[in-house]
Simulated scan of single mutants.
Amino acid sequence: MAALFPAQAKVHPSFSEPELIMTYAQASGFMNTMAGSAPRVRLGSDDLYVYVNRLDIRTEALTAQFASNWLPSPTLEAGYEQAQTYLVRNRVVYDRHDMAAAGRYAVSLPTAYEYGQRQGIFQQLRSIYLYGYNAANGEGLLNVAGATNVTMPADNLGNTTVETYDNGDMVEFLLGQYVNLKTRMFQSGGGISNRIVILSPQRIFLQFQAASIVQVTSYQRPGGGTNTVAGTMQKLAEEIGDTIEWYYDDTLIGKGAGGTDAVIMTTPEIEIPTIPGMNTNEFGKLGPATKAVNLMYTDVAAPIKIDTPTPDGGIASVLETRATPGWCWRPQGLTILSMQYS
């Protein structure tokens, strides 16, 4: 923790630009992989665990021409899942002399510190959501037991990197993973529309969005020869009522198998399969039930700020929040792609 605002020596007459040259960080889209695109603000400030009940059913019926003395019944099996919570905090200490030094640079020190603290906490929440605090416990989306992990195969020409991959083959590979994701979740038919979210490093997303033009021989619907890998996928998904959203996170660079880039493909919310008449998912009408696939719980929507005076006349400002790591309730709805960029 430091506020480094050195003294300045300027030539006069002169003009000083009031605007600052700022250091910026990437605005990650990790929250969009959560159900509802935001954490669930339901924790108490001292809650150490979160529990959720689950209910499984195995149905059975007897078919015969005549009545039987023995009849089977559905089997209901209940259980629960749990996740630890972690307290994320940081602190700054400053006094009026620090504020005066920052003021010479046209900087409001309390505001700058608060934004910096919030950014640090949000980056920490991003880290435990994606990678967990204790990976051995299966925390974080990249450590979910039962998630589907796929390594990008070679294309028809033997290319194995995103930069050299045949664009038509890339569309087919990604659409295959999209189809497999929906198939595992029984998300086909019955008017179901899904939100499919893909979280990837910028260098992969931008390649698919702007540079990888799909050949007309591979995509002969409107846009063939002009649409990109991302655009082609979006158009094809829209034709069956789905949407595909792409978001950035460069911390996924090198986090795939063997040091490749990791790309997360998920449906953050599941839709309940249903059909009029004889519904073979009739049990799905039971409630209350959740549609969530990926979650993070927090105790507050924004970090709590606690200001206290220090003995030497300064101010100590603490920001804190309590949160769970990334928690996937339905691993069938999560695919981790390992893609070699170059």
Rank of each mutant, 00 (worst) to 15 (best):
G132W: 02
P153L: 03
N137K: 09
Y165A: 01
Y165S: 02
L130K: 02
T151E: 08
G168N: 11
V144Q: 03
N167H: 07
G140S: 01
N167Q: 08
G138K: 07
T151V: 12
G158K: 05
G168K: 10
L141P: 03
G132H: 05
L142W: 01
Y131V: 11
E163S: 15
G168Y: 10
A154R: 06
E163N: 15
T148E: 03
G146A: 01
T161S: 08
A154V: 05
V162E: 09
E163V: 15
A154D: 07
A136R: 05
G158V: 09
P153M: 05
G146N: 04
G132T: 09
L142Q: 01
G158D: 04
N159W: 07
Y165N: 04
G146S: 02
N149P: 08
T160P: 11
M152T: 04
Y133R: 11
G158M: 09
M152P: 03
G158A: 10
N159H: 11
D155K: 01
G140P: 06
A154E: 07
L141E: 03
T164C: 10
G168I: 08
N149M: 10
T160K: 12
N156M: 11
L130Y: 03
P153R: 05
Y133G: 10
Y131A: 12
T161P: 13
G146K: 00
N143V: 00
G138M: 03
L141F: 13
M152I: 03
N149R: 13
D155E: 06
G140E: 04
Y165C: 06
V150N: 04
L141G: 01
D155H: 07
T151Q: 03
G140K: 00
T161C: 06
A136Q: 12
D166L: 13
G146H: 00
E163D: 15
E139N: 07
N134S: 12
E163I: 15
E163Q: 15
P153T: 08
T160R: 12
T161Q: 07
A135K: 06
V162C: 12
A136V: 10
E139H: 01
Y131R: 12
A135T: 09
N156G: 15
A154S: 11
G138E: 00
N134H: 12
A154G: 06
A147S: 11
A147G: 04
Y131S: 13
Y131W: 15
A136C: 03
V144L: 02
V144C: 08
G132P: 00
T160W: 04
N156C: 13
G132V: 03
V144G: 02
E139W: 00
T164H: 12
L157M: 14
G158W: 06
T164K: 14
L141Y: 02
N143H: 07
T164V: 14
M152A: 06
P153Q: 01
N134F: 12
L130H: 04
N149H: 14
N167M: 09
A147H: 04
G158C: 10
